[in-house]
């Protein structure tokens, strides 16, 4: 269970990206964060594993406050949060295997990892993760040679190497076409339902949200303006939707849309 209490983030330039955000994620939830561009979704996800330092508030996870954790403990905490990115964030000039192995860095000693000496167990694990995502043929290709969908699968395999309890996915399908979106989200759903991982994911398309989310929170200008479970999403009213996305927004599906065009 992750309990976020009064979380605020003000960037160095004075931008208040999160304002007093509080919510709870139960284990096994598929929580989708929605909101306009700039509403603070990325900031929220990055605060959870401290890629962004929260300014105020607590992130209680299994009894410890991540926000207050020492740097040394942070390494262990981060291992439990696999992260997936909109632009995949693979090292383009490294191979698929190296990118996937990087997911294991939190577990191996610095000296060994520098010389790419991973234990046998880790290497088997990588092979298994690569196979699970259907990338075995791509193992020794450079990441940049892969298609977008394949790259995102490498991103997932990398996250799997962390043996995570939580997956943080920041718009994992925003740079992919709708068909691929379902493939990728399908994998996340599988991790959520079969492997019991908690998923916290930001998404833009209402049909995807309705299809995959078990819970939703809506952000607007750094505040939570809407919260509900999957039943509530199915019956979400236009009014509620506009509260989150603003007046000009329309309910859209995973085609081209006003909100998509809005996104930076």
């Amino acid at each position: 269970m992750i309990e976020i209490k009064n979380l605020s983030k003000t960037y160095a330039d004075g931008t208040q990206a999160l304002k007093d955000v509080s919510f709870t994620v139960e284990d096994g939830q598929f929580l989708v964060v929605i909101g306009l561009s700039g509403s603070g979704k990325s900031t929220l996800l990055r605060c959870i594993n401290r890629l962004v330092e929260p300014t105020e508030g607590q992130i209680i996870w299994n009894g410890t406050d991540i926000a207050a954790a020492e740097i040394a403990d942070l390494r262990k905490i981060r291992r439990s949060f696999g992260m997936i990115f909109q632009h995949f964030n693979l090292v383009k000039r490294s191979t698929v295997l190296t990118n996937v192995m990087a997911g294991r860095l939190g577990y191996v000693s610095t000296a060994k990892s520098i010389f790419h000496r991973f234990p046998k167990g880790d290497r088997d694990m990588a092979a298994a993760a690569i196979e699970r995502l259907g990338l075995t043929d791509q193992t020794n290709k450079l990441a940049r040679e892969l298609s977008g969908g394949q790259q995102q699968r490498v991103g997932i395999a990398r996250a799997l190497m962390q043996e995570p309890q939580v997956i943080l996915a920041d718009e994992p399908v925003a740079s992919l076409d709708p068909v691929l979106a379902h493939t990728i989200l399908g994998y996340l759903e599988q991790l959520n339902q079969e492997d019991g991982m908690t998923v916290i994911c930001s998404l833009h398309y209402l049909d995807l949200i309705q299809r995959y989310a078990s819970h939703v929170i809506g952000l607007r200008d750094g505040r939570i303006v809407w919260q509900g479970d999957s039943a509530a999403i199915q019956t979400m009213t236009d009014k509620e939707f506009k509260d989150i996305y603003g007046e000009e927004a329309e309910r859209v599906s995973a085609g081209r849309s006003a909100t998509e065009a809005d996104r930076g």
Binding site: R78, R79, F85, N89, G155, Q162
Partner: peptide
């Protein structure tokens, strides 16, 4: 991006 991703793994 990749630097952030590697950092996120606990490296």
């Amino acid at each position: 991006g990749p630097i952030e991703a590697v950092r996120a793994t606990g490296a």
